[in-house]
Amino acid sequence: MDTSQIIVTLLGTGLIGLVGWFFFAAPHRTATAVAGSGGMQQVDIKVKGGYSPDTIEVQQGQPVQLNFYRDETASCSEELLLPDFGIRRELPAFQTTTIELRPDKAGTYPFTCGMGMLRGSLVVK
């Protein structure tokens, strides 16, 4: 092994580790829904290469309003799926799409983009 091979090997292994850490150990940005009047819990979510916040906590049994603002044209985020609530919605770019639902059961419900790569979760407490 020559020097460059050693450097490439070390760098490569380090990068692999970094990639793993970067994507899999990413902290969740959690937001708790703001209970508006009339019991409507509202959360604003920005969609830009991901969902921020990506973990949304809501109270069980009260209506929830999720406002998705899609701040990009990248096609990855054009669809939003909330499979447990049977929701598939197109998010127009640079617009807010409001999704209303009523979580009756506690649990964690994932929401994803159309291809399941951008992910977030709705935590019903």
Binding site: G49, D54, C113, M117, L118
Partner: peptide, 8 residues
């Protein structure tokens, strides 16, 4: 995506 630590 990188800024959100997600990859597509």
């Amino acid at each position: 995506g990188l800024r959100h630590r997600t990859a597509s």
